[in-house]
Design a protein around this nucleic acid. Structure first.
Ligand SMILES: [Mn+2]
Ligand SMILES: [Mn+2]
Ligand SMILES: [Zn+2]
Ligand SMILES: [Zn+2]
Lengths: 139, 139
DNA sequence: CTTCATAACTGTAATCATTACAATTTTGTA
DNA sequence: TACAAAATTGTAATGATTACAGTTATGAAG
């Protein structure tokens, strides 16, 4: 696993340091669209010397190299996603969890704005997730 | 014009104070998806006693009453829009302007996530606007 | 026109995510 | 082993947003 991550980082011109591997590994294993603090709080348990600045710097580097995307669905802090494929997100207003939403290609298509050059597309939904709806219904 | 805004605010249980009218008027006249600071900098010229806190509070109130929507396309500061209809946004990475993008209803439709209760839908694009593309091409 | 309760507004301080930056440590290579 | 480059750290600065206490405006009652 670590070898594969090293390979991927190298392919994107990112030297695979210990911290970078751990941070990338966190993203692909948890798949939880974490904030900087979520990554830091988890990893600092096994890397006590870890600095939050390193998490910021590393995710910024991953962004520039195109191996993560930034998600601004949360108003307070940016979230990150190692899944760079075209997909939407749903944020539960109750539990705060962020879910992946697979959308047909026609949802991403848009006509009549040929003069714009689109580099990024984001589709966000907010509301209540299935679990929270159940809980809410019981109250 | 002012009378119409007063009417609209009253309809949404917002007492139409002088400041509230001016802030709402700014939103519908400029249609520029402003940040709090953009609203403040413009209005403080004619209302020298205006406090930025009032702009924050007022836009928060408008949000709660459903007469504006929040746009999180900008990573640094939240933007506001008095157009609450379903439409997408495009943010130019060069000039920072935010444009409205009208999308067909099929773009907003999504199947297979019936268990989610959707309250808000946001579609954002980022890239280069027509004007900045032209300028960029000349360089 | 005064009184008074309530709502609106102001200004300052606190909070919190993010960035800047200089110092220190690690790494790869000769 | 030596050393330059890259990575990491820790602290301070920045900047948007919020908290809050004090002040002002408003509007109804008398
Ligand atoms: Mn995702
Ligand atoms: Mn708009
Ligand atoms: Zn939930
Ligand atoms: Zn532009």
């Amino acid at each position: 696993m670590t070898k594969q991550i090293e390979q991927l980082l190298r392919m994107h011109i990112v030297r695979p340091s210990h911290h970078r591997i751990k941070i990338y590994q966190y993203l692909i294993e948890k798949r939880n669209h974490p904030s900087v603090d979520m990554v830091y709080q988890e990893l600092v348990r096994t890397i006590p010397t870890l600095s939050k600045t390193t998490v910021y710097n590393t995710l910024q580097l991953f962004l520039e190299k195109g191996i993560v995307i930034m998600i601004t669905i949360d108003e307070n802090e940016t979230r990150y996603d190692a899944d760079t494929s075209l997909h939407g997100h749903f944020r539960c207003s109750s539990c705060g969890k962020i879910f992946d939403i697979r959308l047909g290609t026609d949802a991403w298509r848009l006509d009549g704005i040929d003069d714009f050059e689109i580099n990024e597309s984001h589709i966000y939904f907010k509301g209540w997730c299935p679990e929270c709806r159940k809980k809410g219904a019981l109250q």
